[in-house]
Amino acid sequence: MDTFKILINEHQIDLSEDDLTKSSLSNSADSNEHRIKADEPRVLNSEPLKKRFLIAYRGQIYRVKIQDKNDLLIDQMGYTQTQGTKSEHIKAPMPGLVLEIKVKSGDQVQQGDSLIVLEAMKMENVLKAHHDGAVRVVNVEKGQAVDKGQVLIEIE
């Protein structure tokens, strides 16, 4: 029996064809909860050739990507583990305004040290170092507006 890796909104579920026969969806009679039509998943977009599906279910949207054993094999071959240096990029978790920068280039920081205070939607968020290191570069200035994902500080 073939098994498949189903990637679904950052989660992974392994399924085999065998699991499908137990699915409550294809056999709703054994469900003890009375289902009305609105409760059933709706396929918003279906791309079986690309093994991609967009499905809405109970208020959530699920982006599904199916990987069969060939895909998994390709994944494994292309996958090389890199023993990267312990560098850390402090990124903005959300768009906002830099209120305060607590470190400068060359500073030694320890895990948990406050690095930068970011304001978004009237809340102040303190970004902290995830591990010890030295500040290589500070890419932003106080008062600057930043985008989500923008690298604010690099630590090595």
Binding site: P48, F53, I66
Partner: peptide, 24 residues
């Protein structure tokens, strides 16, 4: 929160796999 949505995810994953296999 993740656990709360796990059963739903499983149902959706099964549906997607069914659709895919049917198409194949």
């Amino acid at each position: 929160l993740d656990a709360e949505f796990e059963p739903d995810r499983r149902e959706v994953a099964q549906l997607a796999l069914e659709l895919y296999l049917k198409d194949k």
